[in-house]
């Protein structure tokens, strides 16, 4: 075989199916939408129960995180996510799964070096860059505000 690396990479790309992007998008839209509807339902339920709106704004995501954590623990979340893709990943449910799944996985290595150290192995970058992005946006917002734009 005399193909050089570049030629081979182009050649190999021609093999194998591509991800079904349209179907994946439709599934993500459907399941992501259902998750948002559940959250909206909870939001209204909490309001209906007379809980102050400021608390409901906290309580709803907490409920969704708890729900996703429970589903991860029961071993159902990954089965839903296999179908839903970004539909379960993008909402806060994905964040919950990304924390709980390594926690379950690493408990055999102990609570300190296992669960404690590795719980954020997937969600860690989201927290780091999420915080960083909010700081950057804070600075931009400060100047926009000073300039009277917002």
């Amino acid at each position: 075989m005399n193909l050089d690396a570049n030629t081979y990479q182009v050649y190999a790309k021609g093999y194998g199916k591509k991800s079904p992007v349209l179907r994946d998008c439709a599934c993500a839209f459907l399941v992501g939408g259902i998750i948002c509807c559940i959250a909206e339902g909870l939001y209204r339920l909490y309001l209906h129960l007379g809980i102050p709106e400021t608390n409901v704004r906290i309580l709803t995501p907490v409920s969704m995180v708890t729900l996703a954590a429970l589903l991860t623990g029961f071993g159902w979340f990954d089965k839903i996510a296999k179908f839903a893709g970004a539909g379960t990943l993008v909402p806060i449910t994905g964040f919950s799964n990304a924390v709980v799944s390594p926690a379950i996985d690493t408990k055999a290595e102990g609570f300190v070096l296992g669960v404690g150290a590795k719980m954020f192995i997937i969600a860690g970058p989201v927290i780091v860059y999420g915080t960083l992005a909010s700081v950057v946006w804070g600075v931009i917002y400060y100047f926009l505000h000073r300039g009277g734009i917002v």
Binding site: G16, K17, K18, S19, D24, T72, G73, G75, F77, D78, I80, A81, K82, A84, G85, T88, L89, G94, N97, A98, V100, S101, P102, I104, D105, T106, I122
Partner: peptide, 12 residues
Amino acid sequence: FPIEYGGQRTPT
């Protein structure tokens, strides 16, 4: 990834 992590596998 961890076993229970909800990700999609690529066709390859």
